[in-house]
Design a binder for these strands. Sequence first.
DNA 1: CGCTGACCCTGACGGC
DNA 2: TGCCGTCAGGGTCAGC
Length: 270
Amino acid sequence: MPELPEVETTRRGIEPHCVDRRIEAVVVRQPALRWPVPGDLAAQLHGQRVEAVERRAKYLLLQLGDGTLMIHLGMSGSLRVVEPGLAPMTHDHIDIELEGGICLRFNDPRRFGSFHYLLPGAPTPLLDHLGPEPLSEAFDGAYLYRRSRGRRGAVKNFIMDGKVVVGVGNIYASEALFLSGIRPGRAAGRISAARYDALANNVKRVLTSAIEQGGTTLRDFVGGDGKPGYFAQKLLVYGRAGEPCRRCGATLREVRLGQRSSVYCIECQR
DNA sequence: CGCTGACCCTGACGGC
DNA sequence: TGCCGTCAGGGTCAGC
C-alpha cells in the first residue's frame, strides 16, 4: 500500500506522539514478517527514548537513544496510534507502548513489512544502495537522463527502481508518466533530456500533492491518526483502465510491465 | 551491470 | 454457497 506519500503521512502522524517519550513495552504477536522480527526486540527497545521520527525512502526510522528502529510498511502495513489496552484485531502484529499512554500499533495483513533494530555502525544493506530522495535537489531531469543512458527497459520500471530514485511506486509512477505525456513502456534510454526534466518535475508534483492530501487510500491505508488519505479522488490513470481519459476522453489502456499493471492514455502519452 | 521472473503472504473479487 | 484463478500500493534474490 504505502508509497512515499503514505509513509510520510504516517511519519507526520506518529511523530508528535512519539518524540521524547520512553518505550515502556513492546509486544510482538507475529514475528514472521518479510524478515523475522528479532527475538530480543522488546529487550533492545525497552526503556529507550524516541529522539526523532525520520524517513528514508519508504523506511520509517525511529531514532532512539542507543540505536535506530527501522520499520517498513510493505504492501499492506500501517502504523497508527491507538488507545492503550485496545484489544488487538486480526493482523495487529506489533505494539510499541510509550510512556504517557501511547500505543503504536503495527497492522499488516500480507506481512511484507519489516522491523529491524540497528545499532550504530551496524551494516545496513537495505539502505546502502538506495537512490536519491525524489523531493531532494539531487533528483532532477539531468540526473534521470544521465542514469537512463543505455538502458533498454521500460521507463516506468526505471523510475520505480529504488537504486535510481526511491519512493516512487506503481501509483505515482503511473500518474507522473501521464502528466509528462510519456508512455510507460518506452525504453528509458531513448527519452530526451527535456522529457526527463518534465518527468522529474511531475514526480515531485504528484508526490507533494499526495502528501498534502494525506496519501492515497485504495482499500485500507490509514495514516498515524487512523484517517484515510484523499488522493485517490485525484488519480488520473491508476486503477482506471477502460475508463475515459480525463484530458482527452480516449479509453485508458492497460499493459503489464515488470509484473505490474500500468494504465496509460494512447493519445496523451507517447 | 541490466533485465526477467519467482517468491514472500493474505484477502478481495469475478467466473463457473 | 463454494472453489479456483487472478490480482493487489512492497522489495529481494537467483539466474542469464
